[in-house]
């Protein structure tokens, strides 16, 4: 990490720690400017490089790589694949998002147990997540590609409808749903802008910029992580990694983002 980048990160940390001291507009603009500056050297590249190595590495009981994993465009085709996910996979006869598909390939190609294939979906300071690295690399191969999620398959159509119902599902002590915080244009929680994920432009902005390197956490975070953490704020119990509800919600949001150029891995505060 360069020293300019470190200085920029420190400046963001300051801007976030001391919002009351700054006028709101300038805080937001400041953060946006730092984001731009960081865009040239997004640390997500470190995850991408590790992910590419992991994709090619032989491992597991079958000592196989993931190079024959079919992400929907044919075995081993990575370029542009993420822009069409989630999708229905005939071999498994179900709808999968990228993370779920990776687990499936690790089980079926590399011979891992389901539990091993799912282990450590989110990294921390003391352990790196292979899934986050793989997702970083695979998604980077769709950068600039137009989002084109298809609902032609009946199971995709159904997942979309289920995802929508889950998006509006209110519960818990706060009566919150995703829609509470992401259902209207131009709203803020404290100083944080909230994208309206039910509108095309909001969904495009909020969906196509994940996964993202989180400056505040020093980690690359996947869309599964984003959902997991928003459900925490919603005061719900913990969303299980790769669970049916997570795939349905992702289907709903990814489809709403259709037509936008995929723009991740991005960098966020």
């Amino acid at each position: 990490m360069t020293s300019t980048m470190r200085a920029a990160i420190a400046a963001i940390a300051f801007a976030i720690a001391a919002p009351a001291a700054l006028a709101q507009g300038s805080t937001e603009k400041g953060i946006e400017a730092y984001r731009q500056a960081l865009q040239d050297g997004n640390p997500a590249e470190l995850w991408e490089a590790r992910g590419e190595d992991l994709w090619k590495k032989r491992t597991g009981p079958k000592n196989a790589s993931l190079e024959k994993c079919d992400l929907g465009l044919g075995p081993g085709v990575v370029k542009g694949a993420y822009a069409q996910m989630p999708r229905h996979f005939a071999d498994a006869d179900r709808v999968m998002d990228l993370e779920t598909r990776l687990v499936w390939c690790r089980v079926n190609l590399q011979g891992m147990s389901e539990a091993d294939a799912k282990r450590g979906p989110f990294g921390g300071p003391d352990r790196k997540s292979d899934i986050e690295a793989l997702v970083a690399w695979i998604t980077s191969e769709s950068k600039g590609v137009t989002m084109a999620v298809s609902l032609d398959h009946p199971k995709m159509r159904e997942n979309f409808e289920l995802g929508k119902a889950i998006f509006f599902f209110r519960g818990g002590p706060h009566d919150f749903a995703c829609a509470t915080c992401h259902g209207e244009d131009g709203k803020r929680i404290r100083l944080q802008d909230l994208p309206n994920l039910t509108a095309k432009s909001g969904a495009q902005k909020g969906y196509t910029t994940w996964p993202a390197y989180r400056v505040s956490q020093g980690e690359l975070r996947t869309f599964q992580w984003r959902l997991n953490d928003c459900f925490r704020q919603q005061r719900f119990p913990e969303l299980e990694f790769g669970s049916p509800a997570s795939i349905a919600l992702t289907t709903f949001l990814a489809y709403n983002a259709n037509g936008a150029a995929f723009a991740a891995p991005a960098i966020k505060r």
């Binding site: 289920l162 719900f236 119990p237 669970s243």
Partner: peptide
């Protein structure tokens, strides 16, 4: 959707 949610979450802490 409700059925799906009930199999997609697990107890954690007070939630």
């Amino acid at each position: 959707a409700v059925e799906m949610m009930k199999t997609s979450f697990k107890d954690k802490g007070q939630a």
